[in-house]
Structure formats: structure tokens, C-alpha cells
Design a protein around this nucleic acid. Sequence first.
DNA 1: ATGGTAGGACGCCTA
Length: 268
Amino acid sequence: MPLTVATWNINSVRLRMPLVERFLSEYQPDILCLQETKCPDDLFPRKAFEKVGYGYMGISGQKGYHGVATVARRPIAVHERREFCAMGDCRHISTRFEAGSHTILLHNFYVPAGGDEPDPDINPKFRHKLDFVAEMNGVPAQQSDGFSSILVGDLNIAPLESDVWSHKQLLRVVSHTPVETESFEAMRKAGGWVDLMRQHNPEPEKLYTWWSYRAQDWAASDRGRRLDHIWSSDNLAGSLKRIEIVRDARGWERPSDHVPVIATFALD
DNA sequence: ATGGTAGGACGCCTA
């Protein structure tokens, strides 16, 4: 049976609810994981999601900053909301659902951006980002309880050379510094996670999911980065049929600076 | 080398 899972940093779910509705109606993913909802749970637009057929949701939001939500048109249950770095931030929610013969644990992450200065000794936000990635070592793909796993989200790191428009020019820019990309890839591999976007579109093909708001013409300059990711445990990777980056969404009216990424699985 | 834009909440932090 097919399963489609999408991830999208929406940069205010309330402001961009019309875009979310357009995306859900055009692409109809089974599950959509949102980041940067910037919305406390009691103000989350539950009714609007229910109205378009997405009646199952796990939300973890706070006022003004961060916030994640996983919405679905098929049953999902909240598994856990994990706090990282003892900061009290809403940056993770995991949900659980049945698909084919699998019970799948789906992690939805919003990793700290890390500020501008890539030196943990003088920039606490960069320190926080590195600590957060280190703590993600405690989220392995293989569960002792036999769940299969998917991990998605805005991970705010572009690990490979072809994940940025210019490897050389971004080596000292937060999101692509060696200390980030190396600890990120080490964490992913140690956790047993497969990078599904790269399984489907290997290097050196350029893959971007984010384009800065500050560009005069984002599409013409195309200075993008792959900050959003979809990973899975080994036992699901072979069932991946398709990965789609919805680049068009960056050109929609009042867009997020991130675009949706959709994974389609054919599960037994 | 620099500054550029956007959102939340309303002065300034975060991305």
C-alpha cells in the first residue's frame, strides 16, 4: 500500500494556512509534518485541517517561536514530545501509525538555526545547535520495540557539497560548516538512518529545499540549500518509490522560504 | 564585503 509523508517549514501556520490548504489539495499526502508553526496549541487551526480531511493531528507549539505539528488524513497517535538541551523549546514531536505490516514511528524535528557566527565559544546559539545535534544521537532508527522509523524536518544543516549552491563560499556559513556537516552525518549514520533524498537523487545532483527571503530574485540566482530532510530506517528505504521537492511552492503568494518535500513509499 | 527580507508582536529577537 502507498504511503506519502511530507515535511514543510511553514514559517507561521496561521499566516500561511491558505498555502497549506493548496498544498494538501494538490498533493494529498497522507501525513504532513510542519515546522515553525509559531502558534500555541490552543490557537492551532485544528478546524481548518479537519475541514480539508486532515482530522488527525499531533501538535507541539509555543508562542512566537519554533513549534512543530504532524497532521494526517489517516489515524496517527502522538508517541512523544521530546525536549532537547533542556531549553523548553517545542522542536520535536513523534507520532505512531500502522502502514502495511509496519508500525512506524515518525519523528518531526525543528533543529535550531544556530545564529550567524559559527563559533560555539562566542555564539551560544551555535553551541545550542551543536548540542542539539549531539543529543539526536539518542534517537536511533532501530527501536528495541520493533518499530520502523521515519525522521523528517527542518534540520537546518546542508551536509553535502551538492546540498548548497557553492560549497566553497558556504564553508564558513552556519548550516554548512565542517563542524556541523561532520557531526550531522556521523549522527545520521550512527543512528542507522538512510538519507532518502540522496538515495533517490545521488550526488552530484544539486538539491535545495530553502531559498533566502533576502535574494532579489530567488529563482534566477538559485542560491539554495538543502536544509529539510527525510530519513528512514533501513527496512523502509527499499520501499521508497519517489521523492518530490515542491520547488514551485517557493513562488506561491507570500511563500515560506522553505518548500515541501514528499516521500512516497510502497509498503508490504 | 555588505546588506538584503520576513514573522511575531509591538521593541527587538529570530530566522
